[in-house]
């Protein structure tokens, strides 16, 4: 009887769990380990022979590749700015939508709308805005601000990319803040109002501490998403001019598929993975320690 039960259970697991896990193993786990393995070779990805070089790819990455260093600096600048811009704006928009306005549904729809457009298309839309749109505004107003060459490289282009990415993703983050704000007990806010608290005091002393968990979730979500910057990078600047705005993720693509350095590209992929996982572990640590306290 017991044996029968056991084989029935095994059969069930096979029917329910295995189909997904097999696909998951072939198309997720396997490529992950293969990538780590490839990163130890000097290989173009096509030829049958690959030369084992150990950690040489990694050593080259960190000591002998000014282009990669540039990509890293560009990505870090972008990440810091994007995390701040997206979160601050999303929280502001959530506060606006959450205030008792007649039009709050309309406002929410507007702020969320860009999020349903593909990142790639959003990059192209803004390419038009930065080129033709800004030129047209400059003609009307004559303000030098609009005559900036937004996509011409340098820090201005980092800012341009942050504007575009924020425009697209702020609605999503706003929704999560909104869910947090709606959990705030309104009687607390009413009590504070009776005590004569101003809007800002209410926000700082009542709302803010209560939405700290949402802030944590969103900071990390935008952080790990920012390191994956790819579509906008490709459509807005294509990494150019030169390689000036080549983010880490786009760099992996270029290395693997255009320069045909599979081994070297795989090493870059491993580095990106380590960065993102380190952030995830940090987040886990922080949320756990808060729960313990």
């Amino acid at each position: 009887m017991k044996k029968n039960n056991k084989s029935a259970l095994a059969k069930e697991v096979v029917i329910f769990v295995m189909p997904l896990l097999i696909l998951y193993f072939i198309f997720f786990i396997l490529p992950f380990f293969m990538g780590t393995y490839y990163s130890l070779f000097n290989w173009d990805g096509i030829s049958k022979t690959k030369e084992f070089v150990g950690l040489k790819n990694y050593i080259e990455l960190f000591t002998d590749d000014p282009d990669y260093f540039k990509s890293m600096v560009f990505t870090l600048k972008y990440v810091v700015l994007n995390v701040l811009a997206t979160n601050i704006l999303a929280l502001l928009l959530a506060l606006i939508v959450n205030s008792k306005l007649k039009s709050s549904k309309f406002l929410r729809t507007c702020f969320f709308l860009p999020n349903v457009i593909s990142m790639l298309v959003v990059g192209y839309i803004w390419r038009f805005v930065f080129n033709q749109g800004c030129a047209a505004i400059y003609e009307i107003t004559g303000w030098d601000f609009f005559n900036t060459s937004w996509l011409g490289g340098g820090n201005v282009t980092v800012v341009a990319m942050v504007i575009v990415a924020t425009w697209q993703s702020v609605g999503y983050i706003m929704i999560i803040y909104l869910a947090g704000l709606q959990m705030v007990d309104t009687t607390l806010l009413e009590a504070a109002a009776i005590d004569g608290a101003t809007w800002f005091q209410k926000f700082r002393n009542v709302t803010f501490p209560l939405i700290l968990p949402s802030i944590g979730v969103n900071l990390f979500m935008v952080l790990s998403q920012s390191f994956r910057l790819f579509d906008v990078n490709l459509s807005l600047t294509g990494g150019g001019p030169g390689r000036e705005t080549m983010g880490l993720a786009l760099d992996i693509y270029t290395e693997g598929f255009q320069n045909n350095r599979m081994g070297y590209g795989a090493a870059k992929a491993v580095v990106l993975f380590v960065i993102v996982i380190a952030i995830a572990i940090l987040q886990l640590r922080l949320t756990n320690s808060k729960e313990d306290a």
Binding site: Y24, F28, L30, R228, A249, F257, G265, V270, F273
Partner: peptide
């Protein structure tokens, strides 16, 4: 353990597995 591995993989950037995936 299976659930934990699945959850953890949500954080893996697609570009990290992209090159070998095409190979497979």
């Amino acid at each position: 353990v299976i659930l934990l591995v699945l959850m953890a993989s949500m954080t893996v950037p697609f570009q990290s597995i992209m090159l070998p995936l095409v190979k497979i």
